[in-house]
């Protein structure tokens, strides 16, 4: 294997990693603000991937174009989920929240299984096999586009939190809940917005990932774990950490595919998670508390 190939594979891994980043960003936002761990994260991602696939096969929409529709729909779903299901659980013990979202995850996986069957489905856009050539290095067009759009969405989200009134209000909730309540912020609405935004991230990421990976209903739990691996590597609750963590995981998957059997690549991520939890529980990029 030549160095050009290695470089191409690693760049491809990092680009895929950026799509993972967007998914993990959603998890991080929800946890960072509401302190609820969305255990149904990967299952929601699969839902978005299916939406991407069907809007493509049924409506001929490129997943990059259907992204706003899917993200918007998932935003509404997330908002409703927080208002109707999660909200009463915020003051309940941690394990009950976990079990609630586990139930949601089970419902999603099996609902998808019932609706679409266990077969893998994919999106094949007409540029699926094209690539950019940078000298001797080949970069898949789909990966480059997906990563580019992913970064744009993530940047949009970060800008929203930094510059808009609502975004600042949400950050206030996460920094100091009691203070936010005292100054009269509508916590319930802000929490629902946050959950909606987190799930919308997953919607966008799912659309993009449908360009890169075949989707089956059983992919859900794997993606949930992957999202967790990323946020734990990056430091739970940190947005930049989620972005960097995604790249680390994308790279490590690509590297694992190069070095060992490709089917063992997710073992790499889990191994990484175990090491991180053991030696740097605050994450690679998090600060020690």
């Amino acid at each position: 294997m030549t160095w050009d190939t290695v470089a191409s594979i690693l760049i491809g891994g990092a680009l895929t990693g950026l799509v993972y980043s967007l998914m993990a960003l959603g998890l991080s936002v929800i946890f960072g603000v509401i302190r609820v761990v969305n255990f149904a994260h990967g299952e929601m991602m699969t839902l978005a991937m299916f939406a991407g696939v069907f809007l493509f096969t049924g409506g001929g929409l490129d997943p990059i174009l259907s992204l706003p529709i899917v993200a918007g729909t998932l935003f509404i779903l997330g908002y409703a989920l927080q208002r109707r299901l999660v909200e009463p659980f915020i003051a309940r013990p941690e394990h009950e929240q976990f079990i609630l979202l586990l139930a949601v995850a089970i419902l999603l996986v099996n609902g998808l299984l019932l609706a679409f069957g266990p077969d893998a489905r994919s999106v094949t856009v007409d540029y699926a096999f094209d690539s950019f050539e940078l000298g001797p290095i080949f970069i898949d067009k789909v990966k480059a586009y997906a990563a580019g759009v992913g970064v744009l969405v993530a940047a949009g989200l970060l800008m929203f939190f930094r510059y808009t009134r609502t975004g600042k209000a949400i950050r206030a909730c996460s920094d100091n809940l009691m203070g936010a309540q005292v100054v009269g912020l509508n916590i319930r609405r802000l929490y629902a917005l946050t959950f909606g935004l987190g799930v919308a991230c997953v919607g966008a990421a799912g659309c993009l990932l449908s360009l890169l990976v075949d989707v089956t209903p059983m992919l859900g739990p794997e993606l949930t774990l992957l999202a967790f691996v990323i946020v734990i590597i990056g430091g739970l609750g940190s947005m930049m950490g989620a972005l960097l963590g995604g790249i680390v995981v994308g790279l490590s998957e690509a590297l694992a595919g190069l070095l060992i059997v490709p089917s063992m690549k997710s073992m790499f991520s889990f191994g990484l998670l175990i090491l991180i939890l053991a030696f740097r529980p605050q994450g690679l990029f998090g600060k020690r508390t």
């Binding site: 976990f98 774990l225 063992m264 997710s266 073992m267 191994g271 053991a278 529980p281």
Partner: peptide, 24 residues
Amino acid sequence: FGIGGVYFALLTIAVAEFTRILFE
């Protein structure tokens, strides 16, 4: 290392998945 709650739960899943792939 004082890992509790969610982290502990995730660690248990990660080890199980790790072992699954190992056995595959």
